[in-house]
Design a protein around this nucleic acid. Sequence first.
DNA 1: TATGAATGAGGCTTCATTCAT
DNA 2: TATGAATGAAGCCTCATTCAT
Lengths: 208, 208, 208, 208
Amino acid sequence: MNRDSKSEAPVKKLRSRLKEATADAILAAAATVFAREGLHAAKMESIAEQAGVSVGTLYNHFTDRAALLEALRAKRREALLERLDASLAQVEGQPARVQLRAFVVAVFAHVSEHDVFVRLLMQLPEDAARTQNKSRVLAELNRRLEPILDRGIKAGELRAEGRAFYPALLVGMVRGALDRLREGDRASPAAAAWAEEVLRVFLKGIEV
Amino acid sequence: MNRDSKSEAPVKKLRSRLKEATADAILAAAATVFAREGLHAAKMESIAEQAGVSVGTLYNHFTDRAALLEALRAKRREALLERLDASLAQVEGQPARVQLRAFVVAVFAHVSEHDVFVRLLMQLPEDAARTQNKSRVLAELNRRLEPILDRGIKAGELRAEGRAFYPALLVGMVRGALDRLREGDRASPAAAAWAEEVLRVFLKGIEV
Amino acid sequence: MNRDSKSEAPVKKLRSRLKEATADAILAAAATVFAREGLHAAKMESIAEQAGVSVGTLYNHFTDRAALLEALRAKRREALLERLDASLAQVEGQPARVQLRAFVVAVFAHVSEHDVFVRLLMQLPEDAARTQNKSRVLAELNRRLEPILDRGIKAGELRAEGRAFYPALLVGMVRGALDRLREGDRASPAAAAWAEEVLRVFLKGIEV
Amino acid sequence: MNRDSKSEAPVKKLRSRLKEATADAILAAAATVFAREGLHAAKMESIAEQAGVSVGTLYNHFTDRAALLEALRAKRREALLERLDASLAQVEGQPARVQLRAFVVAVFAHVSEHDVFVRLLMQLPEDAARTQNKSRVLAELNRRLEPILDRGIKAGELRAEGRAFYPALLVGMVRGALDRLREGDRASPAAAAWAEEVLRVFLKGIEV
DNA sequence: TATGAATGAGGCTTCATTCAT
DNA sequence: TATGAATGAAGCCTCATTCAT
């Protein structure tokens, strides 16, 4: 009792760190299982097993299945966006084509590193009806794309006319490429090559 | 005997026509419900209700839920491909850019006419692992794209270098565009406009 | 019209004969299917198929599944009992051992000729609770056994003491033997041999 | 750590004991319900209700209905065979008639004590086709009978000729007797009397 | 807080029976 | 009367969630 009283705050931090560690392990397990078995087929029990905890523990950390999935989505979305924003920060003020390259390269790099779940995330149709304002990845990507495009247009680099279509088209190409990567088609070019080609076609396609 | 023989066959034909009509009604209902509630959430009971039949009837026409879904997929896939092939037949021998235009326009037209389910079909990630050799839409689109591109390259119309990437990129853009259409975003340009822009960017992007 | 009026009665007989023929075909099919798939697993549709008619026709001849099954039971029971009674009639007044031989031989002969369903019928536990006063085969066999035994006892041929048990024991042995026959155990003795041995053991076992 | 280690194992043991208790309760309930409603008519829900658990719990302990039934069969079969083997062990080396008495008495005693389900089990025709190598009760009884009979024959106690038929005949009589017991026929002699009479007839019937 | 057995609503499927042709 | 598609009650099983230890 006495001995402990001094360390109460640290204990809380320790506990809180342990708790976070468990939550992280669960999220990692969930990413694996969701990717392996599908967003709908994945069972809470499989996730628990993969995480090495019991089902009950899942519910000590997340309200329910939906909350767990949403937490995972949010976490992975943030990770992608943070990396992307860091990349974009480094090319601040440079020409649109440079910024677009940074954009595409960052996305490909992130996905090929974090593999399964981010890929799954990227493939989800942006289904407004069913996911409300969740699953914002694609929307956020668009949000970052738009100012780049607008500045490119203002600078005379990019054609203005199709402006409204460009984000969807670029992101569409990226998703198409990722889909191919997923197939594990050994004959198909690697991630970096895909990034390059997406860029080349897109830039050539929209330059003035 | 003689008198009867004339009517027996027609009776069979009538029944068989009625049966087919029921099967069609079920497929139509299934398309609606799958699109409205999702591929996984859609309940057999909802489909029956939408079709105006009882649950049992679903099973008189399709072995089980998976078979019903697959029949629907196959049917809609065929419809899309038939239309597409008809379109392509009309531009046989013409320059790649004309053929590509026919391709993109046909896909957009078909999807915006048959709305919900074909769109859903197009958005399914080509997940080889889970769907085996089913769900071939995207693969079939690629199959039709490749000879067009090859001829375009041979004719000096299109750049040869990125050949391996082009199908995925074009289809990716189309899917990206369709995704936007789905959102029912009133502010976003209409199907035809999307088709034009996809074409413009793609053609400009890959021409020599 | 005129021509027909003379033959109205014959027509009815013809019709009734045709109707009976259909009913018989259905019963025969039912026997096959019940024996092949089990009393519970057998489906009305399988029976219809085996009979070469449609399900509806089954219901034109029998109220419902239970009625069909009971009709079949009754028919086969009657056939067995008729044969048995004919056999017993030929040994009227002779010693018990002769009558018992006639009894056992008739049962074995009938079952091995009509194979599947009668065998199934014989194996059904005489389950009073579930089948009410149906499924009377075993009871009827007992009914015929009792006077034979009683006369044998009165004549000093058979031991009186175990009288109450004898019918069940004899019928039990017969069923045990039939069960073996069913196994199609090629190594096991044939029907006639079983009949002989059942008789030998039983008679030796109960003689004074 | 040390303090906890002492209690962790016991907790696991406690849980596992509770789990076993539930499984046992389910098996007991299943025996009751299968016997009361029939092997086919018995509903999982009835079993759950009888056991005082929910349906889901049944599936936490047994894969499916078939597995539950088979587990029950196996358990009751083992119980019968254990008792039988214990009985037979006590008469090891003694004359065949003594061993056969032990055999018959043990079977009757076990069935009349454990009532319903074992009786049901004994009545199942040894249907090789439908139950594969399951439902081995009768086969196991035969397996134990054969050496007894062989020794009896070698010792000159029993007639050799019908050897191949004897197991089926004895077991047949036992089943016939049990069937009568089941009928709850108040007039019919009690279990012990049946055992005696089966023995008397069989021994007299097969002695040299 | 972790555990994992228990819960039970909900979905899929079967099949005896009905009924319009 | 025969047909066979339609019906729908009923049964099996799953799995997210709860809760006593």
